[in-house]
Computed example of a mutant assay.
Amino acid sequence: MSTIIGYTTGVFDLFHIGHLNILKKAKEHCDYLIVGVTTDEIAFEMKGKKPVLSFGERLEIVNSIKYVDKAVAKEDIDNIAAWRELKFDVFFKGDDWKGTEKGRKLENYFAEFGIQVIYFPYTEGTSSTFLREVLNKIKTS
């Protein structure tokens, strides 16, 4: 029986229970979980804003989570580039991609190599964006 390697990725800014839930669920579906932590530059390119926590801090936090076997820098928006480097068997993604053009493209590409895509629901009521908004309100009060 071979080891199933899983991969997920995220910015993991202002680490919260939603992040933990995704990592826990991902680990339940693989033997070895690799997590790509998005660099500050790529996060800014994707979201138009710099993370609150530095890349080094976010990488250390994610690497310290018991469900994570290895945390790596995600230095490219392209998840296929990550697969070429890491050769994982399962890719975990939030269900906001499910049924979208980006999601179908990813699924179709990964299917050519036998890579399974598993979607997880986001935890209701919390997100880094929400936490950032709350912090900004407190700061300006």
Results as ranks from 00 to 15, higher is better:
residue 1 M to H: 04
residue 4 I to C: 09
residue 6 G to S: 10
residue 9 T to Q: 13
residue 10 G to S: 09
residue 12 F to W: 08
residue 12 F to I: 10
residue 13 D to Y: 09
residue 13 D to W: 06
residue 14 L to Q: 10
residue 16 H to C: 05
residue 19 H to R: 07
residue 20 L to W: 05
residue 20 L to V: 09
residue 22 I to P: 00
residue 25 K to Y: 02
residue 25 K to L: 12
residue 27 K to H: 03
residue 29 H to R: 14
residue 30 C to I: 13
residue 30 C to Q: 11
residue 31 D to I: 12
residue 31 D to N: 14
residue 31 D to G: 11
residue 33 L to F: 08
residue 34 I to K: 09
residue 36 G to E: 14
residue 37 V to C: 08
residue 38 T to Y: 05
residue 38 T to R: 07
residue 41 E to P: 02
residue 41 E to Q: 14
residue 42 I to M: 08
residue 42 I to C: 03
residue 43 A to Q: 06
residue 44 F to W: 03
residue 44 F to Q: 11
residue 44 F to C: 06
residue 47 K to R: 14
residue 48 G to I: 10
residue 49 K to T: 11
residue 49 K to Q: 13
residue 49 K to S: 10
residue 53 L to Y: 14
residue 58 R to Q: 04
residue 58 R to G: 03
residue 61 I to G: 08
residue 66 K to E: 15
residue 66 K to S: 14
residue 68 V to C: 04
residue 69 D to S: 11
residue 71 A to K: 02
residue 72 V to C: 11
residue 73 A to G: 03
residue 73 A to V: 01
residue 73 A to M: 09
residue 75 E to N: 15
residue 76 D to E: 15
residue 76 D to F: 05
residue 77 I to D: 15
residue 77 I to V: 07
residue 77 I to G: 02
residue 78 D to H: 04
residue 79 N to I: 01
residue 79 N to M: 11
residue 80 I to F: 13
residue 80 I to P: 02
residue 82 A to T: 06
residue 83 W to R: 10
residue 83 W to Y: 14
residue 87 K to M: 04
residue 88 F to I: 10
residue 89 D to E: 01
residue 90 V to R: 13
residue 92 F to M: 01
residue 93 K to N: 13
residue 93 K to V: 08
residue 94 G to C: 12
residue 95 D to V: 10
residue 95 D to S: 15
residue 95 D to F: 05
residue 98 K to T: 07
residue 98 K to D: 13
residue 98 K to P: 06
residue 100 T to C: 12
residue 101 E to D: 15
residue 107 E to H: 04
residue 108 N to I: 02
residue 108 N to F: 01
residue 109 Y to P: 01
residue 110 F to Q: 09
residue 110 F to M: 11
residue 112 E to K: 15
residue 113 F to A: 05
residue 116 Q to C: 00
residue 116 Q to G: 01
residue 117 V to H: 01
residue 117 V to W: 01
residue 118 I to V: 15
residue 119 Y to W: 03
residue 120 F to Q: 07
residue 121 P to Q: 04
residue 121 P to K: 06
residue 123 T to D: 00
residue 126 T to L: 09
residue 128 S to Q: 04
residue 128 S to L: 04
residue 129 T to M: 02
residue 131 L to H: 07
residue 134 V to T: 13
residue 134 V to S: 09
residue 135 L to E: 12
residue 136 N to W: 08
residue 137 K to Q: 12
residue 137 K to N: 06
residue 137 K to Y: 06
residue 138 I to Y: 14
residue 141 S to T: 12
